[in-house]
Amino acid sequence: MDEEYDVIVLGTGLTECILSGIMSVNGKKVLHMDRNPYYGGESSSITPLEELYKRFQLLEGPPESMGRGRDWNVDLIPKFLMANGQLVKMLLYTEVTRYLDFKVVEGSFVYKGGKIYKVPSTETEALASNLMGMFEKRRFRKFLVFVANFDENDPKTFEGVDPQTTSMRDVYRKFDLGQDVIDFTGHALALYRTDDYLDQPCLETVNRIKLYSESLARYGKSPYLYPLYGLGELPQGFARLSAIYGGTYMLNKPVDDIIMENGKVVGVKSEGEVARCKQLICDPSYIPDRVRKAGQVIRIICILSHPIKNTNDANSCQIIIPQNQVNRKSDIYVCMISYAHNVAAQGKYIAIASTTVETTDPEKEVEPALELLEPIDQKFVAISDLYEPIDDGCESQVFCSCSYDATTHFETTCNDIKDIYKRMAGTAFDFENMKRKQNDVFGEAEQ
C-alpha cells in the first residue's frame, strides 16, 4: 500500500465507483478503499435476508415463511433508472452494461384523492384515464405537443414562451391547466419533490418532461429500469471497470487518518501504512468535519406477500404521492420490486416508501404510502441524515459526494458526479471521457 497514487477513493457507493471508473479509464492511477467488507456503502443491496434483520437490530431473524435468505437482495436506497437518463448513458458509454441485466418497471402510478391511478404512457391511455376530465385532456394534450416540439435552440418552437424568464406557473396558465393536472405534471412527469420549481424559469421543467417522455418511448410500460439482483450491482459494475483499467481495490480496510500538508491532501493512513495521493474522493462518512447536515430522509422497507392493490398485479412499480394531495411540502414515493428481479424469495415483494422528513414524527409522514401497502409482513425503518460538503474541495483537493436524496431516480446523483468531475479535472464533464479506450493495455477482449 505504500505507494504513490493520482487519486484515492474512500467508500464504494455508486458515486465513488463511477468516479473511480472514469478516473481509471482516463489513465489515472487509482486506489479504492472501503472500511466495509462489502461494496456499495449507503447504496448497497443487503443479502442474505438475515443480514438485513441484523442491521435493523431485529434479533429474532426472519421467519421460515420468508423463504431462503440467499434469495434476497434488499436495497437500502430505493431508486430506478430513467431509461433515457444520465446513468444509463454512463453505463452505455463505459460498457458496464455487459455486467448487468435490466428489466423495465411495469408501471408508474400517481395518488389522487386517496386512490392510485396509472400515469398514462400512451395517448390512448391518456384519453381513457380517469385522472382528468374530457376538456382537461384536450388542454393537457396541447401542452404535451408543445413540450414535444420544444427545442431550446429554435425560438420558432417557443410559442411566445421565453425559456429563460417565463416561469412554469405562467406556462401552466397559458395552457389553462387545472391544479390536479399541474400536480401530476410537476411531480409524476417532471419528478420534482416540491413546488419550488413553479416560480423558476420553465426551461428545466420542460426538459425534465421531455426526458420522461423519451424514456417512456424506449420501452413503453414506464420510463424506469431496474437491474436484476438489486442496485448493489451498479457500484460493483463500475468497480470492475476501474479494476480492468488498473485500479487497486481494498475492502474491509480501516481508514485511520487523512493526511494533510499546508491545507492540501497528501495521503491516507491505514493500519500503520500511508498511501500518498494528489486528490481524494470520499463519501460524507469519511470526513464528518468537512460536511454539513442538509436534512433527513425516511425510508421504510416493507416486505409483502402480495402485489400492491390497484396496480394490475404489477411485479414492479412506482407510486408518487404528490405533496398537495397530503398537505406536505415534499412528495412521498413508493418503489416496489419483487422475486421477478431476483431480489426476493418466490411470491414475495419489496416495497420501499420514502420521503424528505418535515416533522418530528417521520413515520407518521409516510402513513399515506403504508396504507396502500397493507397487509405488511415486516417493516424496517431507516431515518438517514443527508450531508453535503461545506466547500468545493478545490483548495484541499478533498472531494466529497452528497448523500443520496429522496428522489426515486439517479439524475441528482449523476449531477453530483459531473460536478465533482468538473472540480477535479478543471474541465466540464463530457460523456466521451467515459469511453473505454480501444486496444489499450487494460481493455477487455470482446465477449
Rank of each mutant, 00 (worst) to 15 (best):
D2Y: 04
D2K: 04
D2S: 03
D2E: 05
Y5S: 00
V7A: 09
I8T: 03
V9G: 02
L10Q: 04
L10M: 01
T12A: 07
L14P: 01
T15V: 04
T15Q: 01
T15A: 10
E16K: 01
E16C: 02
L19M: 00
L19V: 05
L19R: 02
S20W: 05
I22V: 07
M23R: 02
M23V: 07
V25C: 04
V25M: 07
G27S: 12
K28G: 09
K28E: 06
L31P: 01
L31A: 09
M33K: 09
M33Y: 09
D34L: 03
D34I: 13
R35C: 08
R35L: 08
Y38E: 00
G40A: 05
G41S: 09
E42Q: 06
S43D: 02
S43N: 07
S44M: 02
E50W: 10
K54S: 13
Q57Y: 06
L58W: 01
L59S: 06
G61D: 09
P62R: 09
P63R: 05
S65G: 06
G67C: 09
G67S: 07
R68G: 15
R68Q: 07
R68S: 07
G69A: 13
G69R: 09
D71A: 04
D71P: 07
D71Q: 09
N73T: 11
N73V: 01
V74A: 07
M82I: 08
L87F: 06
V88T: 06
K89T: 11
K89N: 07
M90I: 08
T94G: 04
T94S: 04
V96T: 09
V96F: 09
R98P: 08
Y99S: 06
F102V: 09
K103R: 11
K103M: 09
E106A: 02
E106W: 09
G107E: 15
S108I: 02
F109A: 12
F109H: 15
Y111G: 02
Y111M: 01
K112A: 07
K112M: 01
I116R: 01
I116T: 09
Y117M: 13
K118A: 05
K118E: 03
K118S: 03
V119A: 10
V119Q: 03
P120A: 05
E125K: 09
A126T: 08
G133C: 07
M134R: 06
M134K: 00
F135M: 15
E136Q: 14
K142W: 01
K142P: 00
F143C: 03
L144F: 12
V145A: 11
F146A: 10
N149T: 11
F150I: 07
F150V: 01
D151V: 09
N153C: 09
N153T: 00
D154N: 09
P155L: 07
P155M: 04
P155K: 14
K156M: 07
E159V: 12
G160M: 01
G160I: 11
G160S: 07
G160D: 04
V161D: 03
D162N: 09
D162Y: 03
Q164W: 08
Q164P: 12
Q164N: 07
Q164L: 10
M168I: 06
M168E: 14
R169I: 14
D170H: 03
Y172C: 07
R173V: 02
K174R: 11
G178V: 04
D180N: 11
V181S: 11
I182F: 11
I182S: 10
D183C: 11
H187L: 06
A188N: 15
A190P: 01
Y192C: 10
T194S: 06
T194V: 12
T194I: 09
Y197R: 15
P201H: 00
P201A: 11
C202F: 04
L203Y: 15
L203A: 01
L203S: 15
E204V: 07
E204M: 15
T205V: 15
V206W: 01
V206F: 11
V206A: 05
S213V: 15
E214D: 05
L216I: 09
L216Q: 04
R218T: 15
G220S: 06
K221Y: 15
K221N: 11
S222V: 14
P223V: 00
L225S: 02
Y226C: 10
P227T: 00
L228S: 02
G230I: 15
L231W: 02
G232N: 15
L234I: 12
L234M: 00
P235T: 00
P235L: 03
Q236R: 03
Q236N: 14
G237C: 09
A239R: 14
A239G: 01
R240I: 00
S242F: 05
A243T: 03
I244P: 14
Y245C: 12
T248P: 02
Y249D: 01
N252W: 01
N252T: 03
V255G: 04
I258L: 10
M260F: 15
M260R: 12
E261K: 10
N262R: 14
V266D: 15
V266M: 10
V268R: 00
V268I: 14
E271D: 10
E271N: 12
G272K: 04
G272S: 06
E273Q: 09
E273D: 07
V274E: 06
V274M: 12
A275D: 00
C277H: 13
Q279K: 06
L280E: 12
C282F: 03
C282Y: 03
D283A: 11
D283N: 07
D283E: 00
Y286D: 02
Y286R: 14
I287V: 13
D289H: 13
D289S: 01
R290S: 02
G295Y: 12
I298R: 01
I298S: 06
I300K: 05
I300A: 01
I300Q: 01
I301R: 07
C302Y: 07
I303S: 05
S305C: 01
H306P: 04
I308V: 09
K309D: 13
N310R: 00
N310Y: 11
T311I: 08
N312P: 03
D313E: 00
D313H: 13
N315H: 13
N315S: 08
S316M: 13
S316F: 00
I320N: 02
I321F: 10
I321D: 07
V326F: 11
V326S: 02
N327A: 14
R328E: 13
S330Q: 12
S330P: 02
D331I: 13
D331E: 01
Y333H: 13
V334M: 04
I337V: 09
S338C: 13
Y339D: 14
Y339N: 06
A340T: 13
N342D: 10
A344K: 14
A344V: 07
Q346M: 07
G347D: 07
G347I: 02
A353C: 01
E358D: 01
T359M: 04
T360V: 13
E363N: 04
E363V: 01
K364N: 06
E365P: 05
E365I: 03
V366P: 11
E367L: 12
A369I: 12
E371A: 12
E371D: 06
E371R: 12
L372R: 07
L373I: 09
P375H: 00
I376T: 07
D377Y: 03
D377A: 08
K379N: 04
I383T: 10
S384L: 04
S384D: 04
D385F: 03
Y387N: 02
P389H: 00
D392F: 12
D392Y: 04
G393D: 04
S396R: 05
Q397Y: 15
V398A: 09
F399L: 07
C400I: 10
C400H: 15
S401D: 03
S401H: 00
S401T: 01
C402L: 00
Y404P: 13
D405H: 05
A406V: 07
H409Q: 00
F410I: 06
E411A: 08
T412A: 09
T412L: 11
T412W: 07
C414H: 11
D416N: 12
D416C: 10
K418E: 10
D419F: 15
I420K: 15
I420R: 15
Y421N: 04
K422R: 11
R423H: 08
A425S: 08
G426H: 15
G426I: 14
T427F: 11
T427Q: 01
A428V: 12
F429S: 06
F429D: 02
D430H: 00
F431M: 15
F431T: 04
E432H: 03
N433I: 13
K435R: 11
N439Q: 01
D440E: 05
V441F: 11
E444K: 11
E444V: 06
A445H: 12
